[in-house]
Design a protein around this nucleic acid. Sequence first.
DNA 1: AATGAATGAGCTTTCATTCAT
DNA 2: GATGAATGAAAGCTCATTCAT
Lengths: 215, 215, 215, 215
Amino acid sequence: MSADARTDAKPSGRSSIRDPDNNRRALIAATLDTIAEIGITDTTVSKIIQRAGLSRGMIHLHFGGKNQLLAAAAKSFAEEYFTEMDKLVQQAGNDPESIVMAVVRADLGDVLMNERSTRIWHAFRGAANTNGSIALFSSTRDKRLRTTIHTAFKTIAKDYGDEDDSILARDATFGLLALLEGMWVDYLSNANEFSRDVATSIIRRFIKGLFPHHF
Amino acid sequence: MSADARTDAKPSGRSSIRDPDNNRRALIAATLDTIAEIGITDTTVSKIIQRAGLSRGMIHLHFGGKNQLLAAAAKSFAEEYFTEMDKLVQQAGNDPESIVMAVVRADLGDVLMNERSTRIWHAFRGAANTNGSIALFSSTRDKRLRTTIHTAFKTIAKDYGDEDDSILARDATFGLLALLEGMWVDYLSNANEFSRDVATSIIRRFIKGLFPHHF
Amino acid sequence: MSADARTDAKPSGRSSIRDPDNNRRALIAATLDTIAEIGITDTTVSKIIQRAGLSRGMIHLHFGGKNQLLAAAAKSFAEEYFTEMDKLVQQAGNDPESIVMAVVRADLGDVLMNERSTRIWHAFRGAANTNGSIALFSSTRDKRLRTTIHTAFKTIAKDYGDEDDSILARDATFGLLALLEGMWVDYLSNANEFSRDVATSIIRRFIKGLFPHHF
Amino acid sequence: MSADARTDAKPSGRSSIRDPDNNRRALIAATLDTIAEIGITDTTVSKIIQRAGLSRGMIHLHFGGKNQLLAAAAKSFAEEYFTEMDKLVQQAGNDPESIVMAVVRADLGDVLMNERSTRIWHAFRGAANTNGSIALFSSTRDKRLRTTIHTAFKTIAKDYGDEDDSILARDATFGLLALLEGMWVDYLSNANEFSRDVATSIIRRFIKGLFPHHF
DNA sequence: AATGAATGAGCTTTCATTCAT
DNA sequence: GATGAATGAAAGCTCATTCAT
């Protein structure tokens, strides 16, 4: 969208050749593709620029260095994830049960969970321990999801007055996020054998165990 | 033992001289510690030997190169995990319910799940996509656990005749492993806030949802 | 030429900056000089760059590695040899007798046969057995010379109808090349005692033995 | 011979296991074989001891270091050459013409000139420029041959009184050695196409050119 | 803004040599 | 005399970064 917006906003003659934003984006895309393909350890400046078809100096020109490019790529990756997640959740309506299942379906769907994504995700997570700027966006996924899910579960939990609502909602949130995380790991290890339907059904079973009148 | 034997024989200042196995172990330990501390990408031969207090050439003498040392470290790490896990599971007795909970408690206990372990674990997982010899031992954890848990759940599932036993056991296994995996991720992201008790109770809740007469 | 252009534009202290071709040539020259001085076994990247006054990375930037630089140096050395040889042979005219003697004088002259050349030549030959890319240019010298000489001898041999022309020309070619090769070895072993005139006269004697009406 | 002599001279119980001389010889043989196979540059201590099946320290124990082993190997190689050459020349009788041709046939025969020998020979020659102790034995071949041939040619030259005897003999000696040297180079470059008979006949032709009444 | 040749610190690896056994 | 684990200097090579153009 922003790309389209730029097109008519600044119709410069050679804008497509010298388009800083476009080059920035191309470098980030090349970085993510390279990480997915050969891992973060083997991702070098040379491989990134080769894939992007851009010049060596551009990484430092636009990002200030390789590490900052990696951080920008991590940020961009997280943003892509949430752009898609938000879109799918908004289509689900206001029913908390629908929202929770929309999150599950989105997170396990092929747009968000695929070989490229799971590889990039775990590559960044492996690097996050010792790279603060990557960690920032690496943990973001959990935090934003957590709020959405927790809110939905809190509403649902009100129907189960027997026990403390907040603990039930907390446990459900914590458990669901752990399950989703575990599914990504499983997909990563074994994309061929992984079944999105089985995964969805298992998660639903587990949630239903906490909320027998729903799901 | 051999170390003790040396002690009174010749109390040399340098403890690891002329003890190849000890040196091998020291290098692996230094490798795992370094990975835990600064990440796999920044783990260099120089940092490993410095930490181990051994010479540069020893890595190639004993392992044939850095990558093979990393693979040996991954294997060793997996073995340590299972040695401890097996010990704790065997103490649990033969009751399938006890076995499952023993696995959960072991996997979430501080001997197996701690900052060092979770960092190393995720570092290896991040590298496993593009490094076959690391991947080998990286996936081992899941496979061996899976069998133990699945066997226990199959026994338990027989008491729930209403539905297909094998699907129930499969779902329980798949779900539990995903949950445990997710817990490690959660611990990794913020060890300070993580509560082993809460994690255990959440997992028990989820399992109880599938097997209401147990757990 | 480009070097001249730079001269008045910006007389930078370091003459070879930003002139890739010049740097390539400088590295090859430094390589050949180093080989001549200390032998191919002791020729290291460090010694080459030190002599060239260039940076470490340049060898890999321009040649892809030390071995490829050695191969490029072998090629360059062979080319220099033939450039000079061709020049001297062309000055000799079309008379086959003159051509043969021009080859002999060129090959034994101080431009082509000197301490540097003979050392480099034998260093490369010693390495050629196990280094294909060096072997390629190492054998070139023989093959190109062979054709030139053989053509000349075939013409001369026609005047000696008593025996098979082709065998006579073949023997003369084979023998002359072996003699020249042997002279380079002799020069290498003993540059001080070596006399270009004596060598030339000996070769002439031998050829005259085959072609008594010539030489 | 010396090996046989030792056997009954000292019938020690474990003489074959701990036999310093035998180990020395084994190391030299392994060195020469390694040089023939992979070149002098790639000949390392590890490869030599592996081939010899002996221990690492033995090279320094018996020779004082790798370079001294190389020098000993060069010496041994030269000695083997002359042992065989002397044997064949002595069988030739006292006729100077026979002696010269015996030298030629020996030097071009498969016992002395073969792939192993020519490779080793040229490897040592390539290294001789910068390694004095190798050079010593490298040049030996020429010097001893030179005397034998020169003596024979001086006798023959007396029959050609027209010109200065000593110059004729000198030229013949110089030329023959250069030719033989050239033949080894030719054999080295392509052993498959090389014909010992053609080489012998060419050399004979050239010599006959100087001494028409002989050969 | 863009380029890519150049840099050199630092990487993994090799290797002759040492020395406790 | 013999061994081979251990050493560390030095090798070839990689790579993020710089900067003249």
